[in-house]
Design a protein around this nucleic acid. Structure first.
Lengths: 249, 249
DNA sequence: GCACGCCATTCCACAATGTGGCACGGAGTT
DNA sequence: AACTCCGTGCCACATTGTGGAATGGCGTGC
């Protein structure tokens, strides 16, 4: 609506992040923006310290270290990371499956902020920085389950996009699922967002019970054993609770 | 020089990061920018998904989780912060001096990205986001010491600016110093950049041994005891190594 | 209960600012 | 030598951002 140059510059910044190291021409083609405009924007972002130019035969651009100084408050002082790291490693060791930690970006999406890998040949792969929708992932559902009814309804009103057969797109079904999550203390996702991926998540709460993050174990769906769900759910939930208390203690 | 609105918007973004959660008025006063301009910028950054508004009695702005999707290529995959935090706290507890973590921005500068303060009355003070030259700081020297000869020569060719009597400005002297750093595993800086500041740093390396970051303990020069250098150096180097292995494990 | 101060938010006339088609010089290819 | 692709620089134009002033809500003190 306003400040188009700023919005476009941030788009270009995100584009550089996804394709780094990238050249002016590539960006111009990819996003169909005049080359001179891309060029000017890159130079400006460089001036501001957000981009670095790696000069070889052709100039390639990449994200500079400055962005690391800009972090959400919840992650500053990194008390979340510090509290989460050790329990996450223990959970990985107990299950030998990939563990990850995600935080909500408002109602927009979940963002993966840390992970501990297992050593299996076949395993799920989540990059730090990956985003996913709230209603179609175990981590997102756990967050939704601890928001106010008003917030959940606002989220539902924005529409429940489908990512395959298993995605919950019916508002009533989602409300019922969230209630189940609240009762059980964990969420289960089988193939709702990505095919062949199963995940179990539990919430990490702030002092006022708002959901700060979600802890999840994820695995290929082929390795998911329904019989073990209560055991896994309890384990993930206990670990998440431990992180919550560690962080506040 | 150009795209002033973009540069100003990024300044405001960084300002929010440092003062979050913050109001329109506070930002306008702090940076002496008209309130309406700050307002417009915040709304725009919000539209772009980079800021979140936490509405209470007055609207407060904070950094959204989206920024976490934008990071330097070298740090993609596993979180540096998560791995570093706990060892940093332990090092602070052991020494009761300020610990900080810096990341190189190419050959341009080091950027402070995290810190753990000590509780002494007199202590060094590094803001997150502060930058410093590679050749005149302990953190920068450990990074230089783990780059290729070609890169180091490129850096030297760009000129070694002086920041006082203690700054190493002679290329030969710098090369010798870097060799010493490689041998010992840590760098010592006394007053080379800022007067009356002593710091000891060690490298955090990636899987291919490129330097990702540097861990440092810094103190007023008056508190530096030459006798303890081997002990401190070893401690910092061990902690840095621990972060390296944690990050990769 | 009225006046005041502080707040976030909106408006709008003005001109500063960003735009993008075009052109340039260099490097690699035909 | 002709061509193409690259990153970069230029500049007339009008779109875009600017910021002082106005609005309306809220809490405080007189």
């Amino acid at each position: 609506m306003e400040m188009k140059s700023v919005i476009r510059s941030l788009r270009i910044l995100e584009a550089v992040a996804q394709h780094q190291p990238v050249t002016v021409g590539e960006l111009a083609k990819l996003y169909d923006i005049p080359k001179s405009t891309v060029q000017r924007t890159l130079v400006t972002l460089h001036e501001a310290g957000w981009l670095r130019a790696s000069r070889g035969d052709t100039t390639r651009w990449e994200i500079g270290a400055r962005v690391l100084t800009v972090r959400p408050a919840a992650l500053q002082g990194a008390s979340l990371f510090a509290a989460a790291r050790e329990p996450m490693v223990r959970l990985r060791d107990a299950l030998n499956e990939t563990i990850h930690l995600s935080v909500p970006d408002g109602l927009d999406c979940m963002v993966v902020v840390d992970r501990v890998d297992c050593d299996r040949t076949v395993r799920t792969f989540h990059q730090i920085g990956d985003t996913s929708p709230l209603h179609a992932t175990a981590t997102g559902q756990v967050v939704l389950a601890h928001l106010t009814t008003a917030e959940v309804e606002e989220f539902i009103a924005a529409g429940l996009e489908s990512y395959g057969e298993a995605t919950i797109t019916d508002p009533a079904e989602l409300r019922a699922e969230l209630q189940r999550v609240r009762r059980e203390g964990y969420a289960l996702n089988r193939n709702q967002y990505r095919p062949d991926v199963a995940a179990i998540a539990a919430p990490i709460l702030d002092a006022d019970d708002t959901p700060l993050a979600a802890l999840a174990v994820s695995m290929p769906d082929s390795r998911y054993e329904p019989d073990r769900l209560p055991e896994l759910g309890r384990l993930v939930a206990e670990t998440a609770t431990e992180i919550t208390t560690r962080r506040l203690g």
